[in-house]
Amino acid sequence: MPPASPTPPSPAPDRAPGLRERSKAKRRALIQRTAMRLFAERGFEHTTLADIAEEAEVAVRTVTGYFPSKLDLATSFADEIAARLTGALPAASDTDLAEVLDGWLSEEEQLFDPELMGLTDAMWAANPDLLALANARLAEATKVGRAALIAQVGLPEDHPTMELCLAAVQAVIAAHFIAFTTHLPSPERHDAAIAYLRAIIDAAKPAA
């Protein structure tokens, strides 16, 4: 009687997808940071996708696989922040907007990366138009919370005070993030930003 065939070993857990994702994330970060450094050193207009690919030691096709254009690269930092802000802001109009922004800022502070912030600061300093565009992207994302802001203030949407209130909230958020590029996050700066946001909202409310 022939010996029984050995039982094949159980397949090892497939960890390849996780490894692939980490590898892709590292490659994306390398391309992003290389581009930001070159934009700071050479200027946005004088840097090509080929330059970025050569410095990052990847193919141009690899660069465009992550970032379709130079502008996508230049705005990627602000776009990522704006996307997280959009995801955090509530759709319901009965949510405390300052509380939501408090939680969102806390998450952003946990993601703080000194090297990335330094590259961002240098890029913006060399290309002021990119800083203006970053502020515009953040301001646009803030508008997602407009319904919550209107509900909290208690004024009609077309009231002049509402536009001023929204602009002031946007300015505080933008200033807080610009400060990120030159200062480490601190509880004092965080608390000051939230206090100003609450003061802006309270000041816009009609007198009882």
Score class of each variant (00 low, 15 high):
residue 52 I to F: 04
residue 53 A to P: 07
residue 53 A to I: 10
residue 53 A to Y: 03
residue 53 A to F: 10
residue 54 E to H: 12
residue 55 E to W: 12
residue 55 E to N: 13
residue 55 E to L: 15
residue 56 A to K: 12
residue 57 E to A: 15
residue 58 V to K: 15
residue 58 V to F: 09
residue 58 V to Q: 14
residue 59 A to K: 06
residue 60 V to P: 02
residue 62 T to A: 12
residue 63 V to W: 10
residue 65 G to K: 05
residue 66 Y to E: 08
residue 66 Y to S: 12
residue 66 Y to M: 02
residue 67 F to I: 00
residue 69 S to I: 00
residue 69 S to C: 02
residue 69 S to N: 03
residue 69 S to P: 03
residue 71 L to R: 09
residue 71 L to T: 04
residue 71 L to C: 00
residue 72 D to A: 09
residue 73 L to K: 01
residue 74 A to T: 01
residue 74 A to W: 01
residue 75 T to W: 04
residue 77 F to Q: 06
residue 77 F to H: 13
residue 79 D to W: 03
residue 80 E to K: 15
residue 80 E to M: 10
residue 80 E to G: 14
residue 80 E to S: 15
residue 81 I to Q: 05
residue 81 I to D: 00
residue 81 I to R: 07
residue 82 A to G: 01
residue 82 A to L: 04
residue 82 A to H: 02
residue 84 R to V: 05
residue 84 R to G: 12
residue 84 R to K: 04
residue 86 T to F: 05
residue 86 T to W: 10
residue 87 G to E: 08
residue 87 G to A: 06
residue 87 G to R: 12
residue 87 G to D: 02
residue 88 A to Q: 07
residue 89 L to S: 04
residue 91 A to Y: 14
residue 92 A to H: 12
residue 92 A to Y: 06
residue 94 D to K: 15
residue 95 T to G: 03
residue 97 L to Q: 06
residue 97 L to C: 05
residue 98 A to E: 00
residue 98 A to P: 01
residue 100 V to E: 01
residue 101 L to Q: 09
residue 101 L to Y: 08
residue 101 L to P: 04
residue 102 D to M: 01
residue 102 D to N: 11
residue 103 G to F: 05
residue 103 G to H: 13
residue 104 W to L: 02
residue 104 W to C: 03
residue 105 L to G: 04
residue 107 E to Q: 12
residue 107 E to V: 13
residue 108 E to I: 13
residue 108 E to W: 11
residue 109 E to S: 15
